[in-house]
Each structure stands twice: as structure tokens, then as C-alpha cells.
Design a protein around this nucleic acid. Structure first.
Lengths: 142, 142
DNA sequence: GGAGAGTTTTATACTCATTCTTATTCAATA
DNA sequence: TATTGAATAAGAATGAGTATAAAACTCTCC
């Protein structure tokens, strides 16, 4: 999807972002390519329109877009592996901002409603669920 | 939690692992420290008992434990950031093995059952849920 | 208990994703 | 249009994790 300059200007204003050419092109690259994309993917796409763009600029803008809610981050996670010795079935409550993880009990997945949406062959015999939100500390900080 | 040598030998045999002192101490460190821990955390704990241990050994054994099912990996994720331009409420179905992510629709979270388990102050006004399982390709490969 | 085969551990070098730094360029606004 | 704070480019730096190869250990079988 392409935005003209005025459309993007409006979108940026709504989210309190300055309008730069790079920023517009990065944003368009994400929107145009449906699905889930890495910074490298976006960088490759953007370079076709701005060959001189820096990878850091792509990272900066993606981070900004996620912070301001123009994009969503897939699997917001701590930047390190975490292991869990608790093998009892349980789920996790994850803070999207600080990435803290707490265990959560309970049987809150409605499999009757979930199953029709699960593609054929996807194995959910031992499903693990992570529910993302904002922990108390982070939601207090607005 | 501490295991004596015989207990650990039994556990290892059950999972087809050779018994080494390092392996036992790494495993005990994870089990003893409840919660979710990074390899660095475990490394620090293990070094109190085996000052000469290598970080690579900790990584090797944690990976092995996860593969054999002695431990669980928290937030199994792709090793790169992924962004999603789709802001419509939707959830993700993630393959624990190959880390592929697909969108999933549907209203399958039972909030009546979930709420009592959510700690006070945790903000779930726009919950995002990731359901982990094995995608068709990975579950076919056994 | 010891020999041989196969694993595991260690130390270090390396890769890869991401962030930081600094000089320069650009956008907002007065 | 001039000023000023913000954004960009280029590359260095950081940090998590992996690869490698030699030495040490474990397991199995005798």
C-alpha cells in the first residue's frame, strides 16, 4: 500500500511523529508486505526505493512505530532465552513493555472456539499459551 | 532442590543422557531457582559450585534439557524481531520448533476463567495471545 | 578394573541481531 | 529564511548464542 505525502503526514501527526521520507517509506514497506517481517526484510524492501538508507534507520523507525502503536511486535520477548523448570501445565502472563513473565494457572482456552481456526495438521496436544498485557508497574507508568 | 547422584542418574537414564557432574549441577540450579531464568543466571549460580565451568557448557546442557523435555523454554521465539502491520485484533499461532508464526482469528479466551488468575493491576485491555504448538511440517517430522 | 569408542567439556573465536556514537543533514516553526 | 532540535548515515560496539578443536570424561564390553 502506498500513501501520498498528505496521508502519511496526517498519520504521523496523529501519533506525534515527524515526517521524513525514510520514515514514510519504511512504514509503507511494512504495510505493503502482509505477514510478519524482520528488520532485514524491511531493509531490503526499503533499499529498492532509497538505496542509501541505513539499517539503523530502519531499526529506529520500526522501534518508534511499535512504541507509538502504528505497528505490533510479534512475540515481544526478553532478548535472552529463559528456561522454566516447572513442567506442570501452566501458562504465562507476559508484560509487553518490560518483558517480565509470570506463571498463570487456569483453564481459560475455549478449545471448541479455537479448533476451527487452527489449520489442519497443527499439533496442539500440549498447548502453551502466552497472554500479553502490561504488568502493574508498567501500566502505572502510563 | 538437590538430587543425590543416584536420583540424577535415574533421571538422566530416563531421558537418554550421560551423567556428568556439570550436567547435574546445571539441572539442579534450574530446579532450585523457581521462576524463569536466563543462561547467564544459571551460569552465575552454577559457578558457585563449579567455578571453572564454561558458559558454553551451560548453554549446551540447557538446550539438551529443553530438547529432551526436562525443562521448558519460555517464549520460544524467532531470533529476530518481527513486526506486524495488521492492527486488527488477532492472535498468533507459533510453532515451538521452527518458530513460524501464523495469524489466527477467533474469540477463544474465556475471560471469566482467566480474570481470577490475573494479578491485580495487570492491564489486559488489549490482550494479545500466542498459542504454541507444532506446525504441520514439524509435527510430521515427528 | 581396563581398553576403546563415543560424548562432553573447555577455551576461544566467531556470527548475527541490534544499539550506540558522531558528524552531518533535515524538518518544524518562528 | 534562519534557527534549533530531531533524524539520518556509517560504522564501531555490544551482547547473546554457536562453532571448533583439543583434552577430559563416561559408557560399554570384556
Amino acid at each position: 500500500m502506498r500513501f501520498n505525502h498528505e496521508q502519511f503526514r496526517e498519520l504521523a501527526a496523529k501519533h506525534g511523529l515527524a515526517v521524513t521520507h525514510q520514515r514514510q517509506v519504511v512504514y509503507e514497506a511494512v504495510i505493503a508486505s502482509h505477514g510478519h517481517h524482520s528488520p532485514e526484510d524491511i531493509y531490503a524492501a526499503v533499499r529498492r526505493r532509497i538505496p542509501s538508507i541505513s539499517l539503523a534507520t530502519v531499526y529506529n523507525n520500526l522501534r518508534l512505530f511499535v512504541e507509538r502503536g502504528l505497528l505490533r511486535e510479534v512475540s515481544p520477548h526478553a532478548s535472552t532465552l529463559l528456561v522454566d523448570g516447572n513442567l506442570k501445565p501452566h501458562h504465562h502472563l507476559v508484560c509487553s513493555r518490560c518483558k517480565s513473565v509470570q506463571d498463570i494457572e487456569g483453564d481459560f482456552i475455549d478449545f471448541k472456539r479455537l479448533s476451527p481456526h487452527v489449520p489442519h495438521g497443527f499439533d496442539l496436544t500440549q498447548p502453551v499459551v502466552e497472554v500479553f498485557g502490561l504488568c502493574r508497574q508498567c501500566s502505572a507508568k502510563h
